[in-house]
Nucleic acid binder design. Structure first.
Lengths: 196, 196
DNA sequence: GCGACTCCGGAATGATCGTTCCGATTCGCC
DNA sequence: GGCGAATCGGAACGATCATTCCGGAGTCGC
């Protein structure tokens, strides 16, 4: 019984250059997909990374896996934003901080919406724990009297989806039209008693 | 010498089958693009139409032209809806009727958003005369006191874009989540004095 | 430094798809 | 019914692109 971790794997540690390339590929893919959308070719990504296509395929089973990896990255950033917003002692401020993040995120990276579209199903456009946090964030704001009593996490989720679209539809120069949109919608969420 | 209407065009009327196929192609393309998105193949459209691909190319210079033709059709429908809404004697009712149309239109045809995206530039997502009518519609509602004084056509246009997204993001069964969204946003547009 | 093994580059492969082309078919007119 | 032209069908072409493959370069443990 010599201590081999696994009978058939006397593996060596991965080489340093391989590890570095891992990060380089993700970064390049992020940039290229943001610029050209999901139909960007693997070759253009490889070129941006300064690598050959084969190197990408060593790490990722295929283009779809690469797309998924990046989508997961975005969800993770959104996740961190919800966690930060939830930690804010003032519920209203936390909610607005979160919505600010969503708008800024999409403004910076216009094309990400098309990347996420379809890749994450309708009911997990936001990963489940993230949505749970949005729900809590909403509930706190309702309890504090900042939103009408019947407002739910679904309403905020719809608003998030709407922000995507408003950012994408805004004229080129205008990077903050979405702020006005959010302000208006929040006014509706405060005042609106939707006796349904 | 002999009386030809035009020197170089002794044209005969188009054949009846050609005229019929024109409509068949458009209809098939509408259906297939709605189901599969803009990346649907020309062959699948031809198959749906019960025709050969060559027949499509006789009418349309290429796939892009076909896509454009359908996008123009949608804009035209939207155009008619704005005209009808503007004709309504009650400004508030006209505006709501218009927004109802937008939501229903997108609900029926989920994938049309991706078809229109990018094809019509940011500043003519709605054709110019259509946008002019939206502006008038908005102004009438403002003058009648149904919307806050500083609301403009751009606000309604943003709402239209948002409705697209909300419809697309809604869970499968739920074909009317967008109604709630619109109701809330309209409340914000009524109450919100955005002293900016 | 050296040997063995991992990793990289980029040409080759196979599939998909938009577009073209031309013989066969159908239509309009007499 | 028959002729000439417009139209159709769908095979063939060329381009693009994801994916594979393997000879050669680079790295690690010693």
């Amino acid at each position: 019984m010599s201590e081999r971790p696994s009978p058939s794997a006397p593996r060596r540690a991965p080489r340093r250059d391989a590890l570095r390339n891992d990060a380089v590929v993700i970064q390049a893919a992020r940039e290229v997909f943001a610029e050209q959308g999901p139909q960007a070719s693997m070759e253009s990504i490889a070129a941006r990374a300064g690598l050959g296509v084969g190197t990408i395929y060593r790490r990722f089973p295929g283009k779809d896996a690469l797309l998924d990896a990046i989508a997961r990255l975005f969800v993770q950033e959104l996740d961190e934003a919800t966690a930060a917003a939830l930690a804010d002692p003032d519920p209203a401020a936390g909610l607005e901080r979160f919505l600010d993040f969503v708008g800024a995120f999409n403004t910076e990276k216009r094309r990400y919406a098309s990347l996420l579209a379809g890749r994450l199903g309708a009911d997990d456009e936001v990963s489940r724990p993230t949505f749970e946090r949005i729900r809590q964030l909403t509930q706190k704001a309702v309890d504090a009297g900042h939103l009408a009593p019947d407002v739910t996490g679904d309403d905020i989720r719809a608003l998030v989806a709407a922000i995507h679209a408003v950012v994408a539809a805004a004229p080129d120069g205008d990077g903050s039209a979405w702020r006005r949109f959010v302000r208006i919608h929040l006014a509706g969420l405060r005042a609106g008693r939707t006796e349904g």
